Simulated scan of single mutants.
Amino acid sequence: MGSTHASTIHSRRHWTECAHGVTKDIVSDISDRTPLGDHKILAEHAYEAIKQAILNLQLRPGTQLVERKLAEQFGISKSPVRDALQRLAGEGLVSQTRFSGMTVQSFDPELVDELCAVREKLEEMAVVLAVPRMTGADLAETRGYLDQADAAMVAGDPQRVVEANRLYHMIFGRCSGNRVLDAMVSGMQDRVRIIALLCWSWEKSVGKEEHEQHFAVLEAAEDGDARRAGRLMREHIRWFREEYRRAYR
């Protein structure tokens, strides 16, 4: 009983932080500016607010998501909140169980292993296909993301680091020339962002080695060596998987 009560307090605290943090303007949009009868707009705003709170760890993995409380926070009915949560569940950011209802998806090492096993194959393929197609502008854009990550590391801003890294990984899918592959690579990056932020919060030293590995992939791409770049990307993701397992709390 005490554990359940503590979990509820924890969830409320994180949601309160969310409402007064990065999602404050979105919450204001929902409660003050949106016609109450427009279900689709209400659901979209609720989706964006909850998603941003999850991606920024303001709603941490395992936090219970109670429709009634979220609806009260937004000043709307439960129905658009329910739609938003179902959409997030489809994206792998929210999990639903028969007994505990909706919670923010937890990422135990086994789930991260499964995700990274898929990433290794898809992102290696994306890099191999992308490198021969990448223009000078594409390579400069890729280097720009790494420069952004470098500056964010110096500033001690993990949110900016993981966002720059997300864009870095996505550009290879975009340049692969395969729209299905691009969508699959992009579709995993929100979960990767959460995992990276968790790992960073447990083991801050991972950022430097990750950054060096990203640069190694880029240098191979700049040399036009698609297979080496693809192999380095696969090895990087495997390293990331092992680091998460080692740091997992």
Results as ranks from 00 to 15, higher is better:
Val180Phe: 12
His211Cys: 05
Asp182Cys: 12
Glu124Gly: 02
Leu232Gly: 01
Ile41Leu: 11
Tyr248Trp: 12
Gln52Phe: 10
Asp113Glu: 15
Thr23Asn: 04
Glu123Met: 05
Gln159Phe: 10
Asp223Trp: 15
Gln189Ile: 05
Ala117Glu: 10
Thr103Cys: 12
Leu88Gln: 00
Ala49Leu: 02
Arg245Tyr: 13
Asn56Leu: 13
Ile194Val: 14
Arg82Cys: 10
Lys204Phe: 03
Val162His: 00
Gly207His: 02
Arg143Asn: 06
Asp108Pro: 12
Lys24Val: 12
Ala130His: 00
Leu139Glu: 03
Arg87Gly: 04
Leu88Thr: 00
Glu163Leu: 14
Ser95Pro: 10
Leu88Ser: 00
Thr4Leu: 15
Arg98Asp: 15
Gln73Lys: 11
Ala19Ile: 10
Trp202Tyr: 10
Asp150His: 13
Leu197Val: 08
Ser201Arg: 12
Ala126Val: 01
Arg82Asp: 11
Gln148Asp: 15
Ala183Asn: 05
Arg82Met: 08
Thr23Trp: 02
Val127Asn: 06
Met134Gln: 02
Ala89Asp: 07
Phe240Ile: 07
Gly90Ala: 03
Gly37Cys: 04
Ile9Phe: 05
Pro132Thr: 03
Glu91Ser: 06
Ile30Cys: 02
Arg12Cys: 10
Leu36Tyr: 11
Met188Asn: 04
His10Asp: 14
Asp147Ser: 13
Asp108Ile: 07
Asp25Gly: 08
His169Trp: 13
Val180Lys: 06
Cys199Gln: 11
Gln105Asn: 07
Ile54Phe: 14
Phe99Val: 11
Ser176Pro: 00
Cys116Tyr: 04
Glu163Met: 12
Lys24Thr: 14
Cys116Arg: 05
Leu70Pro: 00
Gln189His: 11
Val112Ile: 07
Trp239Gly: 03
Asp147Leu: 10
Leu129Asp: 02
Glu120Trp: 09
Asp38Lys: 13
Met188Gly: 05
Lys204Glu: 12
Ser95Trp: 03
Met170Glu: 08
Val206Met: 06
Ser7Arg: 10
Trp202Ile: 07
His214Gly: 03
Ala196Met: 07
Ala164Thr: 05
Asp157Val: 12
Asp190Val: 05
Val104Gln: 07
Ser79Leu: 10
Ala247Ile: 01
Lys51Ile: 14
Arg238Lys: 15
Ala151Asn: 13
Asp223Val: 09
Leu197Pro: 07
Tyr145Gln: 14
Gly101Pro: 00
His39Ile: 09
Val192Glu: 05
Val180Tyr: 08
His20Val: 15
Ile194Ser: 02
Phe107Asn: 00
Pro109Gln: 07
Glu141Ser: 09
Glu124Val: 01
Trp239Leu: 05
Glu17Cys: 11
Ser106His: 13
Glu209Gly: 13
Trp239His: 09
Trp239Arg: 08
Asp223Phe: 13
Asp138Ile: 01
His14Ile: 07
Arg246Met: 08
His10Asn: 15
Gln213Arg: 15
Ile54Asp: 06
Gln73Trp: 03
